[in-house]
């Protein structure tokens, strides 16, 4: 039972600051969740803290790969437009 951080992560460090289990680690490859430490926050009253504060859609997923914050859920930007940004990003236009 543990959440994971995907490649969408922008490295804002917010999840690391709020994780009650100190499960979020940063290394040369970026941010990751230590599967041994993460208890998906079941031990405390609020929803998974990393998922509550992360500003980036799809950056945190459960062990089935489902995003805690799916496309369109955080910025309010309709998915289509969001995807256009991601495409331009991929094409290196930013």
């Amino acid at each position: 039972m543990a959440l994971r951080i995907t490649r969408s992560c922008i490295g804002c460090n917010a999840c690391k600051l709020v994780c009650p289990q100190k499960a979020v680690v940063r290394d040369a490859h970026g941010y990751a969740i230590n599967a041994h430490r993460c208890d998906e926050c079941v031990s405390q009253p609020n929803p998974p803290q990393c998922g509550e504060i992360c500003p980036i859609e799809c950056a945190i997923v459960d062990n089935e790969g489902r995003a805690l914050n799916p496309l369109g859920s955080l910025t309010g930007i309709p998915c289509e437009q969001e995807q256009v940004i991601q495409l331009t990003e991929l094409a290196g236009h930013v």
Binding site: G11, N13, A14, I53, P55, T75, E89, V94
Partner: peptide, 25 residues
């Protein structure tokens, strides 16, 4: 780098010209 709110004039992925903020990374 971390923020606790999301403003509609800010995109956390890029440099922001409204708030005094370069891109996060």
């Amino acid at each position: 780098p971390a923020c606790n709110i999301q403003c509609n004039y800010c995109n956390r992925k890029f440099d922001c010209s409204n708030e005094t903020r370069p891109g996060v990374s």
